[in-house]
Design a binder for these strands. Structure first.
Lengths: 143, 143
DNA sequence: ATTAATGCAAAATCTTTGCACTTTC
DNA sequence: GAAAGTGCAAAGATTTTGCATTAAT
């Protein structure tokens, strides 16, 4: 592989960050690649930090937190709150809902069209609906 | 008021705890009265502890946490997770959903029949649905 | 050069735990 | 008196912050 060849995934991540108005720094690029170069995923800050270290990136946990929140702010990620004292970040920012496996503490997307939300209440005065979160909590089937 | 007259609310709380299999201790009784003698409410451990102190009860924050979780375990309360790093406890254990006001960090019940959930996905193999939580996140209408 | 981002360690939150003491049954 | 519950302070866990250093434009 010739070194002057453009590194595709890298260039893509760079573009993605620029578009979002974030400087494509080494850490943000690295984290973006971990997050977005595969299938949609759900990560905790701690888990992503672990992956980064495994991939020999040098990044602090504080920067991982900061970066995840920046990504949420610019719409690259969505934060999912399902468990007290732990934040999950979802690379799927589209309209969809979640299974939460209480046993393992993991999340899975629910295809949009397998939940149908009929009739929503009106937003109370002075507010507007920002998002509707549906979480289906699953317990181990101790049949 | 004659001292031998039965204190109704107190007796009710006592009964409620006994039925749930919890010893009616001074702290549990006091917290139960704060929680259940009024309309349904959403409290944090910290807020409930504050109320207890205001009412001149002597109870530690640790005991408030323990008690809230015990109440959840026996079905007297329901825990609602909407915000990272803060647990809310809901005295309404019936089937219903929530508004979450992002601005103030407060919760409100949504009447059951103003949300209709049609079509739910089947629980993945080895699991069963424990609960379905719907949270409608409200933002301040900066119109 | 200028401006923004990072790393680190420290702090801030929120929650749980260990154990001696107290209360309930 | 036996068993369960409480208080306190300490520890845990997760997340945020302050500030000097480093990197990107």
């Amino acid at each position: 592989m010739r070194s002057e060849v453009v590194n595709r995934p890298f260039a893509q991540a760079q573009e993605q960050l620029r578009t979002a108005g974030l400087r494509p720094t080494r850490q943000r690029l690295g984290l973006a690649r971990l997050l977005f170069e595969r299938e949609h995923r759900h990560v905790t800050a701690e888990a992503l930090h672990g992956e980064a270290l495994d991939a020999d990136m040098r990044v602090s946990l504080a920067t991982v937190y900061n970066t995840l929140h920046q990504f949420v702010r610019v719409g690259l990620l969505r934060e999912v709150v399902v468990s007290p004292g732990r934040s999950y970040f979802d690379t799927n920012t589209g309209d969809h809902h979640h299974f939460f496996f209480e046993g393992s503490g993991t999340l899975a997307d629910i295809p949009t069209d397998s939940v149908e939300l009929r009739r929503l209440p009106a937003a109370p005065g002075g507010t507007r609906i920002g998002r509707v979160d549906v979480v289906i909590r699953l317990e181990d089937d101790s049949q």
